Amino acid sequence: MTTRRLLLSAAFAGTLASVLPAGASADTPAALVEKREFRFENYATRGGATIPVVRTGYQTAGRLNAAGDNAVLITHFFSGNSHAFGQLQAGGPPGWWDAIIGPGKPIDTERFFVVAADTMVNLNAADQFTTTTGPASVNPSTGRPWAMSFPVVSIRDFVEVQKRLLDSLGVKRLALVAGPSMGSLQAIEWTVAYPEMVERVMPAIGTGEMDAWMLGWLDLWAAPIRMDPNWRNGDYYAQGREPPLRGLTEALKLITLHSRDRGWAQQFGRRPVEGQDPARRIQDRFAIEQWMESTAAARAKQADANSLLYLTRANQLFLNEYPSSKAALARSRARWLVVPSRTDRVFPMEYSEELVKELKEAGRTVTLAPLSGGLGHLEGVAGMAQAAEPIRSFLAG
């Protein structure tokens, strides 16, 4: 594995966008993009609550044509944000899918108007490059953070906020909606919620169904936070209170390892931390344990624990408004390019194979383009350059 891919592997659950993605080069800097804010009032959630003010960050590249139909929406993964392409500042890191988005790249910004937006309840609530509304935001009616009084939101709510953003930009039709992991859930929800608006959809490292097995995994991702005494049922924002960093770190350790495969872990072997001996002292650790701890602890300082809880619930509610995934997918009119990772442990490849089967049974045009490599789930972020030619062909049709 190259140093670049090793660092990005850490970035997926660690310092987002702090390194070059596969396919990028320091010698070919990404184009500069501007982070903007979209704001609107009185959003009615799918669950029936009202959020007085919604703020979301977004970035764009390319130009929208007169018909408003050359737009591409890029939706982000669980621990990500809208920095999917380009540089936010000169000399800064490129976005996580910069290898496939930009002038002359598979998603060509000389042809398409590309939009990427932050989700609500974004894990990176405290990051200067993320604009979001969620439990860490101030409730205008109280002047204090919402905490656990923030309404439950779903993947469909993410889509509805994006729809309002696209409407404000003049977008009439999406030539493509695409994203990895949680981004794939948003992309699929888009083509089901607004079938007349989506021409093509590209879910990467995703699934067409949130089944009981995945519901259970998401509960495990969130569990360590609730066990941290500093969580205080979500009431930790007051001055002088410590956030639940221990629980959040343990949650991120679990997500970090789940998002990878055995091939990635081979770099650590069975070696212990230098100067330690796990065979003699129970407190001593192996190298992979130290790596997970340091990576997750650093990431926890940049994240919000309550937002992670809300994100896991939003994922659990994927396509929850339909009687079945089959019924939901039958609504789509789009053409599909499904991009799984052969070594994925979060959404194993069988999920994508089942999705393709259901789409074909519904009479949809669908292509499967698997990714290879030892990074597991992370291949759908770090290894997307592998799919360059399938993406070009898909968008040429």
Rank of each mutant, 00 (worst) to 15 (best):
Q162N: 15
G397A: 12
I101D: 10
Q290H: 14
A314C: 11
E361S: 13
G183K: 06
T142A: 06
T256L: 03
A22Y: 10
S18H: 15
S324I: 12
G102N: 02
R285V: 04
W96G: 02
S79M: 09
G92H: 04
G68P: 03
A303P: 00
A71T: 10
R39L: 12
R392C: 11
R39P: 00
Q316M: 12
H83L: 04
A330Y: 01
L16V: 14
W264T: 07
Y194K: 06
G247V: 09
R4G: 02
T133G: 04
I101N: 08
A328E: 05
E41Q: 14
H83G: 02
L73K: 00
Q59D: 00
M197T: 15
Q267H: 11
F268P: 00
Q290V: 01
P229W: 10
H377I: 07
L220T: 15
Y236H: 14
M197Y: 05
R285N: 08
L169I: 11
F129H: 13
V339H: 00
P340Q: 03
A67P: 00
L165T: 05
A388T: 11
V198G: 11
L309V: 12
G102C: 05
E358P: 00
T45L: 02
S341G: 13
K326I: 13
I205N: 05
T133N: 01
N42R: 13
N81R: 10
N315A: 14
V366P: 07
G373V: 07
Q239I: 12
Q386I: 00
T2P: 08
L88G: 08
G143R: 02
G269I: 01
V338N: 11
D27M: 06
T367C: 07
K253E: 12
P244Q: 02
N139K: 09
L20T: 01
P203W: 06
Y194G: 01
A11F: 03
A10M: 08
A187Q: 05
V114D: 10
T109S: 15
D304C: 14
A305N: 11
L254W: 03
R335S: 15
L6S: 12
A212C: 00
A298E: 14
V356R: 01
F112R: 01
F129Y: 11
E37I: 10
R271Y: 05
E379G: 09
N306R: 06
V138P: 03
W146V: 07
F85Q: 02
I188A: 01
E160M: 14
M384H: 01
E350F: 07
L8P: 00
G240S: 08
P52T: 01
P135D: 04
G179T: 11
G95I: 11
E250I: 05
T28H: 15
V72K: 04
R46M: 03
M210A: 13
A31F: 07
Y351N: 13
Y322W: 15
G216E: 09
G86I: 09
W336F: 15
A13H: 14
G170Q: 08
F347Y: 14
A24F: 03
H76N: 15
I101P: 06
T75P: 04
V198M: 06
R226N: 03
